[in-house]
Design a binder for these strands. Structure first.
Lengths: 194, 194
DNA sequence: AGGCTAAACTTGACACTGTAAAGATAATCA
DNA sequence: TGATTATCTTTACAGTGTCAAGTTTAGCCT
């Protein structure tokens, strides 16, 4: 019927989107290059015109998802009236956790120890760092200083706060967890509890 | 030379041990049934005499590693003089994190969202639960009550504490993290910071 | 002791994976 | 227009999980 053109036209982006959709539906484990190719109506080797290998496509997909998360966190900062209040940090934490609760497969996909790089050393050297953590770190530095937290406690406090939020995301995206309660406020309580 | 007997004799356990060694050296991604079979000097289909499929072997391996972690946590409880002190919880947290720092590949392997079941609902129903969390929960309930923490804050506090420790394990087992500092005491500080 | 049964293992096959090489098509640019 | 080059297809191969059928042997029963 529809005479498919030989050239797809927008294959690179299509592969990224189809790949993410696949992760969302079947999880990281079920992901395969050939499935994604089929989803895009293209031969199994076509992806190699746009990505060096499977790993490179996965990285591009992670970039895309990570950017969504970054947008969410930046919006959270924007829409917070008082940018010096500790309330902002709680809101960022809530956004972070809710992002993964809404798409549980994103967590192991985006935060797999294999590829994730995180820099806890607080010095702002040029070391590559997980952007959401970098953003949280910068914001928290500002907020906590304004609150009058002693300088020598800043670093540990920030790591501790991020660990709590990140761990909460890890735990709430597991198998047996059910979201029958009002998680939005629940998460807020748990983070405040610090 | 050495005429291998047709029957391995202890294949089930050998597969589990060889599998764990493989995870430790090459990571979860590189794990394969056939590699483990070769490591045990046995044909590629031999594992199917002892495990229904790959997934079942992985589960048995996880059981084994999880038991190691449980032993460590139980020892930590035993060797703590004052079993009512919040210091005990910090020590448990430290043991938890150090366990994974010493074997980074264990974290994604043992805590992969795919198979891990965790029950945050605090009610002691018969629901399957991640044993290390169950142990931490029980201990923390006791300790925090003794400390006089109000009853309605117990649940959130325990989840928050475990999230911090678990998140810290997640973060410290990532790619770019270097352990040039004295992590043993560092981790202690971060947990105390709560 | 001798033989039967069932467990433990091997062999061979199949479908599915990632990836490389070589060829086909079509868009772009001189 | 014609050549170049990016994009896609086809074919091929090694590695994977899994199953079915055959082989070996341990252990039990009479």
């Amino acid at each position: 019927m529809t005479n498919k053109p030989y050239h797809h036209g927008n294959l690179r982006n299509s592969l990224i989107e189809a790949g993410i959709k696949l992760i969302n539906q079947e999880g990281t484990r079920q992901f395969s290059l050939r499935k994604v190719a089929v989803l895009c109506g293209v031969s199994h080797a076509a992806p190699y015109s746009h990505f060096k290998n499977k790993e490179e496509l996965l990285k591009a997909m992670q970039d895309h998802v990570r950017e969504q998360l970054m947008e969410l966190l930046e919006n959270t900062i924007q829409s917070c009236s008082n940018s010096n209040s500790p309330y902002l940090l709680v809101q960022m934490g809530k956004s972070y956790v809710m992002f993964f609760i809404k798409n549980p497969h994103y967590f192991p996909f985006l935060c797999s120890q294999l590829c994730m790089e995180i820099n806890l050393s607080m010095d702002d050297d040029g070391t590559k760092n997980f952007p959401p953590f970098e953003l949280f770190k910068t914001t928290a530095f500002h907020v906590l200083r304004e609150m009058g937290l002693p300088e020598d406690k800043l670093k540990d406090t920030i790591i501790s706060m991020f660990a709590t939020v990140h761990g909460l995301a890890s735990i709430t995206t597991m198998k047996n967890v059910h979201y029958d309660e009002d998680w939005e406020t629940k998460i807020e309580d748990i983070i405040w509890n610090k």
